[in-house]
Design a protein around this nucleic acid. Structure first.
Lengths: 218, 218
DNA sequence: GGGGTTCTGTGACATGGTCACAGACAGGAC
DNA sequence: GTCCTGTCTGTGACCATGTCACAGAACCCC
């Protein structure tokens, strides 16, 4: 029954008593595409991701949605915590972007750990603080930066070996814009030689120029 | 030296030991307009507002800025906590919107209280969760709602006896838009008989209609 | 009453989001 | 192979919003 705790960055130095409590929990595997929470649903516990990636979206009434953040290995889905601490329901939606291994810490255990384990508290608080920072950044970008800049940043962020495998719609969601706008921007990038586009993927041709665009202030 | 703790909603039921620690701290008074934090400055401690209102803004590179949230009596300026927990500096700016009485809990005391006082932890966590919810809401509104709707909501929110004392610029900041846009919207509202405008104030004439606009989904 | 400051109004323009399509591509059925 | 279907992308039109450049109006302080 040991094993998973060591894999969770930030929990590996937890106190013995807390560790015993956590060790009873069994990780689950979620298929890619599984929705963890639907809007309006109450949180059942605190989720720690061991492997894979969960993406959390905010969905607008018109169906458009925007990527709030993604949770990678070692991270926790902080949204769920809000419910545990007495907040209202949230409108977001969490979806497994890859196959995911995760542990659900039930409400009772979560609260007990918060009271007894400084290391666990630190883990939760750090996660909280990071999300908060991330959301601030997101808000800043959405409110103040142009699509061009956000798109360049998203491309650089998601590139693997100079290629981004994503549809225009996915890119649009990631930066909180609309597909058509992304299509046009990408087209403009392509005409300037910054990228080359294919169905389902974008190949970066001039990362330096993209980085310059991403850094542009306004 | 007692007195202020009772005035802080959420801290009034704190444990005796923690109370003694807090009781040593002396509230300060800040004049209206005082900046609590400038961008890039490290946080000195955890701030609890006893009276008055602090407004926290996110400032864009073009000088435009948007109201992140305001902290009223009993609330704490969570932004400052991020620094205490090892986050990066933030770009926001906190300003006393009225005369403010507040207590600064120094870093060392803050960390000690977090470790020893469940009630204090609850206070901090609740504040955190509420801010998070608020920011989510803000993001949702900025990303998905039209100016018309946000403006109507802001007017209803700030009305006192059917009147909102604020300049167009202030309203624009509150909803994350530009002054000219607010001016035009208000003009449209006025032509429809929803409000009457005067220099430095807006008088609500038809709150029902405004509420309808504020509730519009898209 | 004058002069400076702040607040508001307005036109012109660029960006971005929405709508309505049409075409291009992929993958399976046959 | 051809056909069918669904997904992905491209395009034009239009409206909402943000930005810039001013001008005029209201307020304040001397």
């Amino acid at each position: 029954m040991t094993g998973w705790i060591e894999a969770a960055t930030g929990l590996d130095r937890i106190e013995a008593a807390a560790r015993r409590r956590l060790a009873r929990l069994v990780p689950v595997t979620l298929d890619r595409g599984t929705a963890l929470f639907h809007p309006g649903e109450a949180a059942k516990g605190f989720i720690v991701v061991l492997a894979g990636r969960i993406e959390v979206f905010l969905t607008g009434p018109s169906g458009r949605d925007i990527l709030l953040y993604s949770v990678e290995a070692g991270g926790s889905c902080v949204q769920t915590t809000l419910g545990l601490l007495g907040g209202e329901d949230y409108t977001g939606e969490a979806v497994a972007a890859t196959e995911v291994r995760a542990v659900l810490i039930p409400r009772a255990d979560f609260l007990a750990l918060m009271d007894t384990s400084p290391a666990f508290r630190g883990f939760v608080f750090t996660a909280f603080a990071e999300r908060m920072q991330g959301m601030l950044h997101l808000l800043e970008r959405v409110a103040f930066q142009r699509v061009e800049s956000r798109l360049a940043a998203a491309l650089l962020d998601r590139a693997e070996a100079g290629e981004v495998r994503a549809t225009h719609q996915e890119l649009a969601t990631a930066i909180g814009s609309a597909r058509e706008v992304v299509s046009r921007r990408l087209d403009a990038f392509a005409r300037s030689g910054l990228v080359a586009t294919e169905r389902g993927s974008v190949i970066l041709r001039d990362s330096t120029a993209l980085a310059r665009l991403a850094a542009v202030q306004d």
